Simulated assay, not measured.
Amino acid sequence: MRRRHRRQSVSPDLDITAFMNLMIVLVPVLLLGMVFSQIKMIELNFPGESAGSSAKNEQLNLVVTLLPAGMEVADSKRGLLRVLPALDRGQDYTALREVLRGIKTRYPDKTEVILEVGPDVDYQTLVTTMDTVRSYPAVVAASVVEGELFPDVSLMNAADDRVLAEAPPVENEEGA
């Protein structure tokens, strides 16, 4: 009788070169992608929620109405201050910033503004307007910094049939 000898099996080497190449490429790509996916949050308030507001700050109730046809800057007690019709390229953010800077010089402690938004205003216009009413670029000691305008923004819906008002005569350059 013959005996059969079992051959000893030799385990093959694992070739992980392709997997290592994939990891070398994938890890930096994922790390770079994390930097670009940061989310910036904008804190909002609703009109009438601030219970601790003082009577001194209540002398001006600033309302900026944003419509597709343009923007209105008004005081809810005194009425319309300035009408800024939209330009061919979009809203006139430069004029809005200048009007708000003039108001801020007269009311330096005022930080609240109500942003009344029309139904047909797109998201990018809303965010750009919010950035405009919050701050302005200022040069301090040869560097550009953000100057504060009205950082406490409250949102409110404008009526569906709301149209841009006629421009009142401008009394002074500060708009208030």
Rank of each mutant, 00 (worst) to 15 (best):
T128F: 08
M34K: 08
P108G: 05
R89N: 13
E116G: 06
N21R: 15
E58I: 05
L67G: 00
N57C: 12
T132P: 00
E146A: 15
M130H: 01
T17Q: 08
A51I: 13
L67T: 01
P108K: 04
E58F: 07
R4H: 09
G79V: 03
D92N: 13
R162L: 15
P47C: 01
A18N: 11
V163A: 13
V25F: 07
L100P: 00
R89M: 08
P85E: 07
V170I: 15
G33A: 07
Y136K: 03
D15E: 08
D88L: 10
R2D: 13
F150D: 05
S54T: 15
V83Y: 02
V99I: 07
V153K: 03
E58Q: 15
K56T: 12
L66E: 04
V113N: 04
L67A: 06
M41Y: 10
F36V: 12
A86R: 00
L44D: 01
T105Q: 14
L96Y: 03
L164S: 04
R7M: 09
L126Q: 14
S76Y: 07
S135G: 13
A138W: 04
G48S: 04
M130Q: 07
P47G: 04
T125E: 12
R162K: 14
M23E: 11
Q8S: 12
M20H: 05
A95Y: 00
R78I: 03
G175N: 03
S9E: 13
P108R: 08
L87F: 00
V140T: 08
Y107K: 06
V35G: 03
I103K: 04
Q124N: 10
K104S: 01
K40S: 13
A138D: 10
A86K: 02
Q38D: 06
L14M: 11
T132C: 06
S9Q: 14
S37F: 14
L149K: 00
V83F: 02
L30N: 10
G48H: 02
G147D: 04
A158I: 02
G79E: 00
P151N: 07
T128Q: 13
S50D: 13
L66A: 00
D109M: 09
R97S: 15
S54M: 06
E58A: 15
S154T: 02
L155R: 02
L22C: 08
S143A: 09
E58D: 15
M23D: 05
D120N: 15
E146D: 14
I42G: 08
R6G: 11
